[in-house]
Write a protein that binds this DNA or RNA. Structure first.
Length: 567
RNA sequence: GGUCCCGUAGCUCAACCGGAUAGAGCAACUGCCUUCUAAGCAGUAGGUUGCAGGUUCGAGUCCUGCCGGGAUCGCCA
């Protein structure tokens, strides 16, 4: 199944073909002038440009053909050569009947049995999770849900930072302090920043950290034991955070898990003759003849022989190909790492780590800035902890629940709070930076997650009342003029889904969900539903409500947002 | 300095392949809870899309130049 615009595109495309024009030009889209028509096709103007003909003449030929089709209630030419279309009520009603009978609301299934690995979250060992981790986690988890719904086999991997120099910083700091035995999360949270600051300030201290890193990577028994311990304790904390966010992973791997693949990989790359030694480091040149910009080489081994993130990222690709044979690997990582990923992808292809037909995508996200336009910091200069943000939002939600006379239910407050946080983040375009605003993120009014929940909950309540009165939603639609905006919007879902999947942009679905909720709220305010006298109209409107609820829940679900029973 | 990204209403952001009258939310103002949840609805106001050219029937979107901001440019991730 497809969207209504999709169906119309096919019909209009055929008309183009009959006129000896390419079918693609028959693409129909939702009109951006709803006052004039429901749908528009701009292809006649494009065709005219190529054929150097009068666009209105071309449009006229198409209009003559299309007017004979009883799918359309109106076909007319406007302006320079727009073809404006209205569908017949019966056609819209039939289409909607099909949508409501489909448990996917018309969203097609991608059934090629393809596997996609998503790399998101990326928390670091020994650092408490802060709001900076939100974007990767939330966008990644949402993309995982979206692709899963679309029909891919999905694997979400947290890909922890657990094998680089920060590990050496911690281990050497423990040595300096003479610390023996296990460390607690609290100790770690104090030790790591101290070590990092010292290393930054003192090159000699940094050398110690590098040496410790190398020693760990070489398998030193004592270091490995300690490392294992603080990894375990860190992961425990992370899981708590991700659980609180409702962010799911299928794999809890990290950089260290790539270690076993690295030595053989490097041997193979050397054998291929694509490596070189430069300043003591082992590198792969990834420049290409048509490069306009400078492209630094990818470093496989540092001059001291230790591995770094470029190495583990390569090894991780080997691991992923071996264990899952993926068709796509998508990285949801800070935009600022784009150069690294370009180098990585080039090196991986050059070294034959992945086949040509495996898609490697860097789905970068923008930086979370403060109101000053610089990367977000709290007033104290630190970063806001994730758990503080969540408890803040939950607290506000509980107060709100009390205000509106619902007894304080933690479950509802939790759902409202998470909806607010997640929607506030996801509605931003993935690629661009955005301003972190605590107030906005914990707001429940306007274009927010709770607004969407509220509309869904209203529908639930309405449907319950209806069934209490013995009214049922109909299977057929009998649309009045006041019902049509909502009905037409319901028929758009597949297009927005497609757009989101193509570009990995959840904000497109956020926007759609919001528009749908808005259209419903307007409909709800303008139309009698339960008190509607005509039973066919009433049943049809109940069906519209039910369908709106279904689609809202469906979209919110792939955004990682749960709807409470009431609020 | 090289490369890349951004500049849209007072603020935060949309605008699918170049389409018609550039849309939302917040903040401001005016109405609406005696029919279904006011976390809401209806409405008013707010714009030379940074500036100057160009391409096009048509430009926020493409091209050139300029101004302003940001990111990045080998052993950190």
């Amino acid at each position: 199944m497809t969207s209504l615009a999709g169906k119309l595109s096919e019909i209009v495309g055929k008309a183009f073909e009959e006129q000896g024009l390419p079918a693609e030009l028959g693409a129909v889209r939702v009109s951006d002038r709803p006052d004039l028509c429901q749908f528009q096709c701009n292809g006649a103007m494009a065709a005219a440009k190529v054929a150097k003909k009068n666009p209105r003449e071309i449009a006229q030929g198409l209009v003559d053909l299309l007017s004979r089709n009883d799918v359309f209630a109106k076909v007319e030419i406007a302006g320079p050569g727009f073809i404006n279309l209205d569908v017949a009520d019966e056609y819209l009603q039939d289409h909607l009947g099909g949508v409501s009978a489909d448990d996917r609301a018309g969203v097609p299934v991608h059934d090629l049995d393809e596997t996609v690995i998503l790399d998101y979250g990326g928390p670091n060992i020994a650092k408490p999770m802060h709001v900076g981790h939100l974007r990767s986690s939330i966008i990644g988890d949402s993309l995982r849900r979206i692709l899963k719904f679309t029909g891919y086999k999905t694997i979400g991997d947290v890909h922890m930072g657990d094998w680089g120099t920060p590990m050496g910083m911690i281990l050497s700091e423990l040595d300096i302090r003479g610390h023996d035995g296990p460390v607690t999360m609290e100790q770690l949270a104090e030790i790591y920043p101290q070590a990092a600051a010292d290393c930054k300030a003192d090159p000699e201290r940094m050398e110690q950290a590098r040496a410790a890193t190398k020693k760990l990577q070489d398998g030193d028994e004592e270091y490995t034991k300690r490392w294992r311990q603080f990894i375990d304790i860190s992961v425990e904390g992370m899981k708590k955070n991700f659980d609180a966010l409702g962010v799911h992973f299928d794999e809890w791997k990290g950089e260290a898990d790539a270690h076993q693949f690295i030595a053989p990989m490097i041997e193979a790359l050397k054998a291929e003759g694509i490596t070189a030694i430069d300043d003591g480091a082992l590198i792969i040149d990834v420049t290409q003849p048509d490069d306009k910009k400078e492209m630094p080489p990818l470093i496989l081994l540092k001059s001291d022989g230790a591995v770094m993130y470029s190495t583990t990222d390569m090894g991780t690709i080997v691991d992923r190909v071996k264990s899952h044979d993926p068709d796509k690997i998508i990285y949801i990582v800070d935009q600022r790492q784009s150069l690294h990923f370009e180098q990585l992808f080039r090196a991986a292809r050059k070294g034959g780590l992945v086949c040509e037909d495996v898609e490697l995508t860097f789905a970068g996200f923008g930086t979370m800035n403060g109101k000053d336009g610089k990367p977000f910091k709290t007033r104290a200069g630190g970063v806001m902890r994730l758990e503080d943000l969540i408890s803040d939002a939950v607290q506000k939600a509980r107060e709100r629940l009390k205000e509106v006379g619902l007894q304080d239910e933690f479950d509802i407050a939790q759902k409202v709070a998470l909806a607010a946080i997640k929607f506030a983040d996801l509605q931003n375009q993935r690629q661009s930076d955005y301003v972190f605003d605590l107030f906005k993120m914990t707001s429940f009014e306007g274009k927010t997650g709770p607004y969407l929940l509220y509309q869904a909950v209203r529908i639930q309540s309405l449907l319950k009342k209806a069934s209490d009165q013995g009214f049922e939603a109909g299977k057929d639609f009998v649309l009045q003029d006041a019902d049509k905006p909502l009905a037409l919007l319901l028929a758009e879902l597949p297009d927005h889904f497609e757009n989101t999947v193509k570009n990995y942009t959840p904000h497109v679905l956020c926007d759609y969900a919001y528009k749908l909720a808005q259209a419903f709220s307007s409909f709800y305010g303008n139309c009698h539903i339960l008190s509607e006298e005509d039973e066919h109209v009433r049943a049809s409107r109940l069906a519209l409500c039910a369908q709106t609820r279904k689609q809202l829940i469906m979209v919110l679900d792939v955004l990682g947002i749960e709807v409470p029973e009431r609020m």
